[in-house]
Amino acid sequence: MSVSNLLENWAEFRHTHPVDDVPHDPYKWAMSIDLDACSGCNACSIACYAENNIPVVGKDKFEHGQVMHWMRIERYWPEDGREFPDQGATFLPMMCQQCEAAPCETVCPVGATNHTADGLNSQIYNRCVGSRYCSANCPFKVRYFNWYDYPTTENVWPAEMTQQLNPDITLRGKGVMEKCTFCVQRIRAGERAVKNEGRILRDGEVQTACQQVCPTGAITFGNLVDPESKVHQKWKAQQVELTADEQEKDKEEGGTDLRGYRILEELRPYPSVMYMERVRESAI
């Protein structure tokens, strides 16, 4: 525990802040979600449960607001005078936005949540003491706390299903915070695989679980610094800049027809997820 360690390594944790001049190299993981394509089927949410060993808390705890869905489908009802079934809900898949300047990172007293060089907001379960300050300061409320010791709770994973738990993922004990990781285990496995070939990951070689199962292909995931990647092309086409807190296109008078936007961008967390506004009629 030397002071030099503090001074040198400290800065290293935080060097990928977008206003700093350190570029993301060779990866910056990002996402693009087309709300027009989203049908609210919840497949992404289920896939996330399966991939990340997320405990199923049951009806009572769900009603208490203690549900653990890292990927959640939010429903909003347009207020245009019509009611269901004439009027359908609009859906918003919401997960950790992997903010570049994440409000959760600065407030953690023990530094359990940090920024990785490839632009992920990481969570170190072993280091977390459970102060929940990160969740208190998260604008999107996408952090989930282990209110109970789920691995030892009955029926979280029914007996016959414990064999299907993902061996690449740890189970989280009580009292720690967890959240969407952009399926970091898949990213790391992919990186190791291509390292043997002496190259970096190509677009599409790593898919997140939610992207993989989306029946309408609403979710695009990839490397934002790779000009060939779909996610890069979408962000570019929508003129959404990662490092901007207000997009150039929004400054134009009369607005723009482009659909891309980031949620709560004005708070300057610099989210890594771009949404594309829904344009079709919302009735199902």
Binding site: N5, C108, P109, G111
Partner: peptide, 21 residues
Amino acid sequence: GRLWQFYYSLPYPNDRGLWPN
């Protein structure tokens, strides 16, 4: 949440050279 690990938030000497935030 993890009362038993509260000392992580104090700058105590440790093998891993970890400091609190």
